[in-house]
C-alpha cells in the first residue's frame, strides 16, 4: 500500500520539526546522512547520502506516496563543488526516482532567497518574479538552480503533483540558519541609513505549510509569508539588541575579510538583506493551501530566543 511520506534532510532542525508534526497522521520515512537525535520510536530513518544509489531502493519498494525534499544545504563554509553537487545532483536524483516509481506528490523546499534582495524589487514579489538571487550573490546559484530544476520537473511530469514552497526567512528556537543566527547576536551589524522591511516565519509554521502542500490537488509555486512585515530596526528593538551601524561602502569588504579569517559567520553578500527589500506576496499559499501562520508577529520574532512554547499540538489539533 502506498502510504509513506519520504522526507529528505529529516535530521536538520526544520526536518525534525516537520517530522514531529507529520508522524502523528502519516507514516513518515526519513532520509539523511546525519543521525536524528531524539527520534520518535516509530519513525523510520535511513542514514544514506542522498546521492547514493541505495536511495533508489527506498523508492523501489513502491510504498511512497509523497516526497518532501528539503535536503538542500546552504552553508557558506562548505566547498562550492560539494555544495553544488549535494544540492543539484541530490535534487535531480530523488525527483527522478519519484517520477520513475509512481510517487504522486513532490514538495520541494526552496526559499525567497532565490529572488534576492535588490534595490528595484517590488515590495511584494509574486511567484512569477524572476529569480535574480545569484546576480549579487553568485555562491547561491545552486539554490536557484534547484528551484528552476523543480519547476522544469513540474512541467515535464504532469502526473506528479509538484509544489515548490518558498518561505521567507525561517526563524525559531531550533533553526540555525543565517537569519536566526543574525538575530541571536547581541551586537548585530546594520547598514547605516538602511532599514528595509523584513518578513520572518516561524519554523513550525513552515512545517504546517509543508504538510498542507501534501493535500491532493495542490501544485505550483508558493511563496510562504509569516504574520506580516516590519522594519528590521523594529525586529532588533523587540529583541533588545544593540545594533552597530556600519557604512555600507566599508561593510561589505570588511565582512568578507572577517569571513575569510573565520571571524564572522556570514559572507559580505548577505548584507544585501540588511539593505534592500526581498519581501514577497503570500496570497497564493493563503488561497490555495489554506495556510495561515499560527504564530503572531511578536511570537515569531521572539522565538529566536527560544522562549515561546512550541505549539505543535495546537496546529495539528486545529
Amino acid at each position: 500500500m502506498r502510504d509513506g511520506v519520504l522526507i529528505t534532510g529529516i535530521s536538520g532542525n526544520l526536518g525534525r520539526t516537520l517530522a514531529k508534526v507529520l508522524h502523528r497522521t502519516e507514516r513518515v520515512i526519513g532520509l539523511d546522512r546525519r543521525p536524528f537525535p531524539g527520534k520518535p520510536k516509530d519513525l523510520e530513518v535511513h542514514l544514506i547520502d542522498i546521492r547514493k544509489r541505495k536511495v533508489e531502493d527506498l523508492f523501489r519498494k513502491g510504498d511512497i506516496k509523497a516526497l518532501i525534499h528539503m535536503a538542500i544545504v546552504h552553508d557558506p563554509r562548505l566547498a562550492q563543488a560539494e555544495h553544488h553537487s549535494f544540492n543539484v545532483l541530490g535534487t535531480k536524483a530523488v525527483l527522478e526516482y519519484a517520477s520513475r516509481y509512481g510517487v504522486e506528490k513532490v514538495v520541494v523546499l526552496s526559499s525567497t532567497n532565490v529572488y534576492g534582495p535588490q534595490p528595484d524589487n517590488d515590495n511584494f514579489l509574486t511567484e512569477e518574479s524572476p529569480l535574480l538571487g545569484s546576480q549579487r550573490f553568485p555562491e547561491i546559484r545552486d539554490l536557484v538552480e534547484v528551484d528552476m530544476y523543480a519547476q522544469q520537473y513540474m512541467w515535464k511530469h504532469p502526473k506528479v503533483e509538484t509544489a515548490i514552497v518558498r518561505p521567507v526567512h525561517i526563524v525559531g528556537p531550533n533553526v540555525k540558519n543565517a537569519p536566526s543566527t543574525y538575530l541571536r547576536l547581541k551586537y548585530p551589524w546594520t547598514l547605516a541609513g538602511f532599514d528595509p522591511m523584513v518578513q520572518l516565519i516561524h519554523e513550525e509554521d513552515v512545517a504546517l505549510a509543508l504538510s498542507l502542500a501534501l493535500k491532493p490537488g495542490v501544485r505550483g509555486l508558493f511563496n510562504l509569508v509569516g504574520p506580516g512585515e516590519l522594519p528590521l530596526s523594529s525586529v532588533l528593538r523587540e529583541l533588545g539588541r544593540q545594533p552597530i551601524p556600519v557604512p555600507h561602502m566599508i561593510a561589505r569588504p570588511l565582512l568578507n575579510k572577517l569571513f575569510d579569517y573565520r571571524l564572522a559567520g556570514f559572507p559580505g553578500a548577505e548584507l544585501d538583506h540588511l539593505q534592500f527589500l526581498c519581501t514577497v506576496d503570500g496570497g497564493r499559499a493563503e488561497r490555495e493551501l489554506g495556510f495561515r501562520p499560527v504564530y503572531t508577529l511578536r511570537e515569531t520574532i521572539r522565538s529566536v530566543l527560544g522562549e515561546v512554547a512550541p505549539r505543535v499540538q495546537r496546529t495539528t489539533a486545529a
Binding site: 524589487n121 515590495n123 511584494f124 509574486t126 532599514d195 528595509p196 522594519p231 555600507h248
Partner: peptide, 26 residues
C-alpha cells in the same frame, strides 16, 4: 525613482512616509 532605495537615510525615510518605488506592480 528606482535608485532611491540605494541612498542611505533617504531610503528608509521615504518608506516611513509612505513613498514607494515606482514599479508597475507596486
Amino acid at each position: 525613482e528606482k535608485w532611491a532605495p540605494t541612498l542611505p537615510f533617504i531610503a528608509p525615510f521615504f518608506a516611513r512616509v509612505g513613498q514607494v518605488v515606482g514599479t508597475p506592480e507596486n
